[in-house]
Nucleic acid binder design. Sequence first.
DNA 1: CGTTACGTTCAGTCCGATTTGAACGCTGGC
DNA 2: GCCAGCGTTCAAATCGGACTGAACGTAACG
Lengths: 161, 161
Amino acid sequence: MIRSKARQAFVEAGGNFCRKVGLPKSIGQIYGLLFLSHKPLTLEDITQMLEISKASASVGTRQLIAWGAVRQVWVPGNRRDHFEAVPELRQIVRRAYAEFLRPRLDASEKRHARLESILEEDLGAGRLTPEEHDFCASRLQRVGRLQEQLRTVVPLVEQYL
Amino acid sequence: MIRSKARQAFVEAGGNFCRKVGLPKSIGQIYGLLFLSHKPLTLEDITQMLEISKASASVGTRQLIAWGAVRQVWVPGNRRDHFEAVPELRQIVRRAYAEFLRPRLDASEKRHARLESILEEDLGAGRLTPEEHDFCASRLQRVGRLQEQLRTVVPLVEQYL
DNA sequence: CGTTACGTTCAGTCCGATTTGAACGCTGGC
DNA sequence: GCCAGCGTTCAAATCGGACTGAACGTAACG
């Protein structure tokens, strides 16, 4: 159990946030808990305070470490792993972009190029009339234009964040 | 069934995109299908081409209409509803921001303010030591700073998109 | 008016993803 | 070298949410 109501509320907010963006709720809770903890916590601390299983805490912390959002620290004279939050939120956001969004955007442009060639095949094979083909081509161009704009905006965000 | 492989691929991409961002797959499929259709489609067209139930198609189209991503058009001499995609992707993205992200950011700032007052209560009630309180306060400030930065960036994005 | 064709609604089902408990392997201490 | 303490792994349970089929309400057409 968590004594402080502020911590409790922050943990809940973290959990809800993750759930909303399609990540495991427990991961948001763990990060929230560590973010407001003045000293590193052990797996057992986490399982007790959040009332989640050891398994969830274990995979959750490792995931957060992989993302660079949590650090593992060793406390002298204590065998257990200790964890603390990496408090540089901006860097975490940046990394999330570089690791998740960016590759997705790249893949999306690749797919777009592939689609345009498939569209030509469709025309050649008679699966589309010339009119349909032209229509689809113009619509795909719109998608391409949006992708370009995203490409322009993204570095801006990266810079101003 | 969809003849054109390009259309088929585009529909799949739309479905996957929605699934990734936590929306019903069928919604992405419907928008993808309409986006590459040179003429408006009926509910039955949609259910047949996407092989989904009438219920899903009905709910999906209405959701898309509510978001301004799809228009309902009446075809003379035909009782059925017809649907066509709104092709202005930028506007749809903007609207998605105004309707989803923006309110969420606002709510997040409200919550942040509430958290800071709860933190004071915790201190007063002895649920946190003064040191813990100060630590939490400084951490919460970081969250506040991130929110400010988001506030700065978001209009930029809106403008350049 | 009665009938038929449509779209909507709702309860039930299904599916993917997270969470859990238990078994396992490893490491350090005695 | 054995034992206890810890973290990890994996199959099974659980959960939330999307999808479906059937019943319903409505409007057009004869």
